[in-house]
């Protein structure tokens, strides 16, 4: 489903090279995890895939179901089925959470040539999905992410994911800043969305999230490259021994 080939990326501003040839294939229905030390380029990969400004792709490609992503605007990527759950969800004062969601859902439906959801239908679906994530009506009325706790922000990301029904979901450090209960809630939300036609790329620093969202494949990223790929046992190895051994192994 997602195919990244030889991806090289540098920062636009100071020419710093962050990704130095990433190769990665995620198949439909699978959950892949990327682990790696701080500064290895994990978050950059997620930003580049979703089209954030400030990065320059110097080589390589990334396709979703065979369609080149890197040439598209962020909203086109979203309509194509790519979703990024942000590490730091953005606060937007003045825009109601409900308005935000409805605008996004309908914009994507429109882009795909589908009819917009009626207000009534939309509300029904949102309520149902919000309930599962323990998001109350009051939270839906507040401006997007403004004044939300860390856990509320992450749950709100998962709610958006549930509403937008993307094909390819990237979770960027979704576990950061969450306590055990909040992490379980978020993981349950993600697991509920697992299906044949949908793939996940879970970016995380620690193994603990992977206790709740079981990956099929684990990649270790360091210094802008994938240095090792394996099964779930690779994550445990990192948990027990840290990254140092792995890094030494490669060098």
């Amino acid at each position: 489903m997602l195919e990244i080939k030889n991806l090289h990326v540098k920062l636009e501003e100071d020419d710093k090279v962050i990704l130095k040839g990433v190769d990665l294939t995620v198949e439909a229905g699978k959950v892949h995890a990327i682990m790696g030390p701080n500064g290895s380029g994990k978050s950059t990969l997620s930003y580049v895939l979703s089209g954030r400004d400030g990065y320059e792709v110097t080589d390589g490609s990334a396709t979703l179901d065979g369609v080149e992503l890197l040439e598209m605007e962020p909203e086109e990527r979203a309509a194509a089925g790519l979703f990024l759950a942000f590490q730091y969800p953005v606060e937007i004062p003045g825009v109601g959470n409900m308005t935000f969601l409805r605008t996004a859902v309908n914009a994507q439906r429109k882009a795909r040539g589908e009819a917009e959801l009626s207000a009534g239908d939309f509300l029904k679906i949102v309520r149902e999905k919000a309930k599962a994530l323990k998001i109350d009506a009051e939270m839906m009325k507040r401006p997007v992410n403004v004044g939300f706790s860390g856990g509320e922000k992450k749950r709100n990301e998962i709610l958006q994911m549930a509403m937008l029904e993307p094909k390819m979901c990237i979770l960027d450090e979704t576990d950061s800043g969450l306590d055990v209960d909040a992490m379980k809630l978020v993981a349950d939300g993600v697991n509920a969305l697992r299906s044949e036609g949908r793939a996940f790329l879970v970016i995380t620093h620690y193994q603990r999230l992977l206790d709740h969202i079981k990956p099929d494949v684990v990649h270790i990223m360091a210094d802008g490259r994938i240095i090792k790929t394996g099964g779930p046992e690779l994550a445990l190895e990192v948990e027990n021994n840290g990254y140092a051994n792995l890094l030494a192994e490669v060098q």
């Binding site: 954030r52 909203e75 953005v90 004062p93 003045g94 825009v95 935000f100 605008t103 914009a107 937008l164």
Partner: peptide, 22 residues
């Protein structure tokens, strides 16, 4: 904020207009 909206599929113009109204 603009990028966040667009990453959720809202087209640029519409996202701008939403932020202006906000």
């Amino acid at each position: 904020a603009l990028y966040y909206l667009r990453s959720r599929g809202v087209p640029l113009r519409q996202a701008q207009s939403l932020l202006v109204l906000a």
